[in-house]
Design a protein around this nucleic acid. Sequence first.
DNA 1: CGTAGGCATGGAG
DNA 2: ACTCCATGCCTAC
Length: 783
Amino acid sequence: MGSKKCMNEKCCGTTSLDLKRGWSLKSGGFASLCYKCGSAYENSVFCETYHSDESGWRECKTCRKILHCGCIASKHLFEYMDVGGVACISCVKRLEIQSLQPMQIPNIISGGKSANKTSSQEAQPILLGLKVDDETRKLLQMSRAIGSVPPAVELEKEESVIRYTENSKRVQSHPQNGSSSVFAKPNYSRPKQGVKDMYESLALASLKFSLTSHLASSSSVLAIPAQGAPVPGGMVESNETSKGSLQHGQKAHHVSPKPPKPIPAGSEANKGSASQARVPRPPTEGRGSKHLLPRYWPKITDQELQQLSGDFNSTIVPLFEKTLSASDAGRIGRLVLPKACAEAYFPTINQSEGIPIRIQDIKGKEWTFQFRFWPNNNSRMYVLEGVTPCIQNMQLQAGDTVIFSRIDPGSQLVIGCRKAANNTDVQEPQAPPSLNCDSLGEASSSGVNDTHTSNGGQASDDPQPHLTTAEKKKARNIKNKRLHMNNDEASELRVTWEEAQELLRPAPSSEPTVVTVDGYEFEEFEEPPVFGKKTIFISQPSGEQEQLVQCDSCSKWRRLPANALLSAKWLCSDNIWDSSRAACSAPEDVSPGDLDSSSLNKENKKQRCTESAASKGGEPSGLDALANAAVLGDSVADAGDNSAGATTKHPRHRPGCTCIVCIQPPSGKGKHEPSCKCNVCLTVRRRFKTLMMRKKKKQSDREEKEKEDSRAAKEDIAGMALLDMNNPGKETGGGGGNGDQTAETSRGGGLDLNCDPRREDEILAESSAAFSPVDVFAGQNGE
DNA sequence: CGTAGGCATGGAG
DNA sequence: ACTCCATGCCTAC
């Protein structure tokens, strides 16, 4: 495979066959370019055989992008770069190799967009050296053989030395002539990420090297810090070698045993299973994968890679990965692509609208996304649009990782995923941690997925096996952002949680211990609660309570004893109380119409509830009242009270809704005993407690604020406060006030059934004159 | 009013 | 000082 010739007869290289692949085409594919003449050859037919063995990455002197890779062409490119020639396929502005004499130092090379930023700062070449002697080479080769040395630090046969100065200067020395070419990074005036990456890379090498140093403890060396120069992450220690490494041929000494920034892959490597080591793989070829942060390096095990390659019967080239942010995984469906990755591995786009791009998932299913960008601060922000279906298909959420790979030949892009090792950081507590992309099934390898985990690989040993430091930070970020929810969001969650509580049932086997708190009795259970099937409690005219439950299979409603405890999933066949109804084929206990109509509107329902309860002489309250409204009441209404007319108020109220509105009892009726332990009373007490706390807090806040503001425009402020009182929760004060009032008045002083539950509570808190849980019912009921 | 698109902003590195 | 990018915000539909 590797032996290719440039077909351009005028190519300066003539017979040499050094083509560099990775030039993206508008078609979405990639071309190979002769780095000498720039001739492009579609179909990436070159170099495949070299990728695995000769990968490495270099920085283009012109554009500063990381030209990478593993192909032999890039290695040659590197060599030419060493002698001053630059054939960067990324920046296009190639310097003819012949135009420079060997070792002519292209100190500042024009071309890169940041080239103009360079210049003046000619830092002394304080070096971070990477020097290898034969012994080291053997060691590294061994390490590489077991997968513990990232390609990023793989060796060149010529033992080129790559060094980085403190100020991001890069020095290369070439062993063949013993001299060095020094060229400044265009914007080395600031510590650039790319340099940090380099540091990390070297640090990684150092770490891994040290991890494998038992193989040859006496051998030489890797990362050598500069003279007193602090090395990011403190991964290497200063050493005299730094001076030595200035001069080619001088051996660097010594490996710093001090681990660099924790790069978990390293620790994995330490586990010895090379093929399963989740090693961050440095950028494969791609135009200008410059400064591709290690966090984006695809972390995939050799085993995964092999398996996936096998699955696809092709060569899989992991490109990059990204941990999904909240917005990536959100409903907007926009996945922000790291700029460097987008520019390196995706087709070049010139229009903001971008292009549709087709990406396969592991199953071979093809997704089409819109690959586009937005102008952003003189730069671009690349996004993939329309990813929601794919994300959902893979059941990914924030904190999980998507991995982009490429299938060769053909350059088909593949998207895979890796679930966060511990979703509890960012996900709901009940979500079990998962390492697999369920939707991707077993074929999760190839960097595209986490096959090894599904194969019972080593990941299970390591709580956070594959997370890089950056990822952990990101995870923390996500976590923090989640924690930094504003009050509104928190309220939303509270509501959800309260709703969830309605589904909690005591464990069947557990007996409650009754404790009294503030005069209220609570049942405590030894066993954790279980989620039960949501049911509707109803009261028979006889006063007997029942509950209605809907079959998860046929959706028919069944009447069950009130004390029946149901699992979250319930089928007719589970009806042990009524064998005649223990099959889906049995007629429904309650007509669907009753239930459907019950979801119409609350106001109607409330009225119906009142009417039906009154007419039946019962004293339903709370959930019972709701249930009656939902079932019996609706029946009544359907039979004779359709004239009431449906409104759109409070459409969320449905059978089983336990909001404070729905569970209120009819006016003047249904007062329970203070010690009543029914669901309604417990719920009300709980809510009452919350209300009081909020009220107190709100009052104190308000008082404080009023104290501050009272000096200025007292009357106006008072007016505003009055408005606020009238419109609690309204951020925009004035406008809606009258309308709301009118609405409420028209409902006879009742509640706005459309109101936000949070507001609902506030209204309750402020409108309830008497603060007994039971009176909360009555108080809001227009009495 | 809800949603989506597009851009702006600001924190982090 | 600068870039990147997560997310907020505004506007149009």
